[in-house]
């Protein structure tokens, strides 16, 4: 009798254990499903956000390729592996590629333009004669092989003066404390005089300049 009771009690305990395991398993399964559901919802939200962000990147025209790359890397790091997101990522990558190509093209054009400007400046510097002094111009006008060439030098020399009518004084010397001059002339006439006479009997004694650095009065002295 005692043995029978024990047997029954054991069976009951066994059933209770089975029931407990059953209940426990059911509860665990429902928790897992909930977690899975929450994870799926989170992923869906991430995908939605990623799509929105990617669309925004595609529509944006202000960001540089580097900024687009940085934003895209952030989205790619989420590893969403969603076909739509992947397609948008590809589009953004294509856009970045195009932008980079455009930027490279612009940079190349700019480089070429700068190079051309540099070469032009160098060529102009080579072509341009050294900056001539007034004495140089006098000498070149006198020794010019033709009137046309002398006239070119005259025109260049006149650029040093405030006007072709700039007065030119030719001092003969100082006598009794008083300075004597030849009749005053103008720079235009004086330069033509040098061209005609093919000799320079005067030296530069004094140059007066205006505020812009141009010569507004020239004083020469008769060579002794």
């Amino acid at each position: 009798m005692k043995i029978t009771l024990s047997k029954h009690l054991l069976h009951l305990l066994f059933f209770c254990l089975i029931a407990l395991v059953g209940v426990s398993t059911t509860s665990c399964n429902s928790k897992k499903k909930l977690a899975e559901k929450q994870a799926a919802e989170a992923r869906a939200a991430k995908i939605s956000q990623a799509k929105a962000d990617l669309q925004a990147l595609l529509a944006n025209t202000n960001k540089s390729p580097e900024e687009l790359e940085r934003d895209l890397a952030r989205i790619k790091a989420m590893n969403l592996n969603d076909p739509e997101v992947n397609a948008l990522i590809k589009q953004v990558e294509e856009k970045i590629g195009q932008k980079k190509a455009e930027a490279a093209k612009i940079a190349e054009e700019k480089r070429k333009a700068e190079e051309a400007a540099r070469l032009k400046a160098e060529e102009e510097a080579r072509q341009k004669p050294a900056k001539l002094t007034l004495d140089d111009y006098f000498a070149r006008i006198i020794s010019a092989p033709s009137a046309a060439e002398a006239n070119n030098y005259i025109n260049d020399a006149l650029k040093l003066f405030s006007s072709p009518e700039t007065p030119v004084l030719i001092s003969l010397g100082v006598f009794g404390g008083e300075k004597d001059y030849d009749k005053p002339t103008t720079i235009s006439k004086y330069l033509n005089y040098l061209k005609d006479q093919k000799r320079n009997i005067n030296t530069i004694d004094n140059i007066v300049r205006d505020a812009s650095g141009k010569i507004k009065e020239l004083e020469l002295m008769r060579k002794k």
Partner: peptide, 16 residues
Amino acid sequence: RKKTQVNGREIGYWDV
């Protein structure tokens, strides 16, 4: 012998 004004100052020159 003559005199004239150049840039506001009087100078004496010989007119030949």
